[in-house]
Write a protein that binds this DNA or RNA. Structure first.
Length: 319
RNA sequence: GGCGACUUAGCCAAGUGGUAAGGCACGGGACUGCAACUCCCUGAGCAUCGGUUCAAAUCCGGUAGUCGCCU
């Protein structure tokens, strides 16, 4: 019998957190955050991180586990998430993956295999400078020689992806297209529900705008200032987060504060749109359109009923 | 009331006789170790009516709207 896994995701600001607590309590679960930014300490306001008092005693994993100057990536996420899941299962509880980073969810849900090798930072930098100096086409030409298949799916201008494909080839001697091909065939080792919470686009965009204003009132600028005083620079992975890079620009005088906040709103809306695109493409998802439920409670009740297999699983296991 | 300027896609904006640059937004899409990243695709016939011309967004005139100045 496959082990159960509940996933709750959706675009930013849709209201995942509130639902996740109700679900965790009803299913006797623990929450694993699937969020690339909430892993960082000292970044609370801009990431809309759940507050300890909002957790209502539900255990949360993968929040506040790194300092802002530490690197993070999907392979690490997967490793930590899987470790947390083992702990949760061993306690006889159900893991609930909650967060908006679709890519991360995929890595756990399908147990994608990543190569053993570490990221080769110096090689990446070398390739990036090459692209900058001689043009993106130059890199693309290099990729054509070693991995023509990838050239079908990666656009020449997408330097980041071209670099990764080249890096992968250098490390493994194998084209990444072949690796992707095999990983795409994988079926999930879990018995799962993949919920995507959604909301009318116009309403969501309004909520995003409001939430950014709330962040401003809550002291986002101060939070970023404090991070800069600690030595955080815009090159760090953490400082690529929405709301951070824009405020840094303003604090460094490259933008004015008012405009920076408008950019945050704009870019957050863009982000939400990209998230929709991602989830629409994922197979086996259950869309939870908020407007189709008369209340939050009804939505929660639906999920609880729909997750009956979780209780079944643990009941059988006890026997 | 008079004089002048302006009027190009949802917004900003090039184009001053030869068949509408570009940017932004919106919408769609890609994505398998930086993913809150990175990247791709997508729209109008030029306020309106009439004239000149082989040909007008571009020239001329009428009308409307906007803005400025004057009385």
């Amino acid at each position: 019998m496959k082990r159960p896994l509940i996933i709750l995701t959706g675009p930013t600001a849709v209201g995942k957190t509130a639902l996740s607590i109700g679900l965790a309590k009803a299913l006797d679960g623990e929450i694993i955050s699937a969020d690339s930014m909430q892993v960082y300490k000292k970044m609370d306001i801009g990431t809309a991180k759940i507050k300890p008092e909002e957790m209502q005693g539900v255990k949360h994993h993968l929040i506040d586990i790194l300092e802002p100057d530490e690197e993070f990536n999907i392979a690490l996420f997967q490793k930590y998430a899987q470790k947390a899941m083992e702990e949760i299962y061993s306690r006889g509880k159900c893991p609930i993956l909650v967060g908006g980073t679709g890519f991360y969810i995929q890595s756990v849900l399908y147990d994608i295999r990543f190569s053993k090798t570490e990221a080769d930072v110096s090689y990446r930098e070398e390739l990036e400078t090459l692209a900058k100096e001689q043009g993106a086409e130059k890199l693309f030409e290099m990729l054509k020689k070693v991995d023509p298949d990838s050239c079908q799916t990666i656009h020449p201008n997408n330097v980041k992806r071209v670099v990764r494909a080249l890096e992968y080839y250098k490390q493994t001697g194998e084209p990444i297209s072949k690796h992707n091909e095999t990983q795409k065939m994988r079926t999930s080792p879990y018995q799962f529900r993949y919920y995507v919470l959604s909301l009318d686009r116009g309403i969501l965009y309004q909520r995003i705008n409001e939430r950014v204003e709330q962040m401003r009132e809550a002291g986002l600028v101060k939070e970023v200032q404090a991070l800069m005083e600690l030595g955080c620079s815009e090159h760090m992975v953490s400082m690529q987060g929405l709301g951070y890079k824009e405020i840094i620009d303003a604090l460094k005088g490259r933008d004015n504060m008012e405009h920076a906040f408008e950019r945050i709103k704009q870019e957050t809306r863009h982000f939400a749109k990209r998230q929709f695109t991602w989830f629409r493409r994922e197979k086996d998802v259950t869309w939870l359109e908020k407007e189709k439920f008369s209340s939050e409670q009804e939505l929660l009740d639906f999920c609880i009923r729909d997750c009956g297999f979780v209780k079944e699983y643990f009941k059988n296991r006890k026997k």
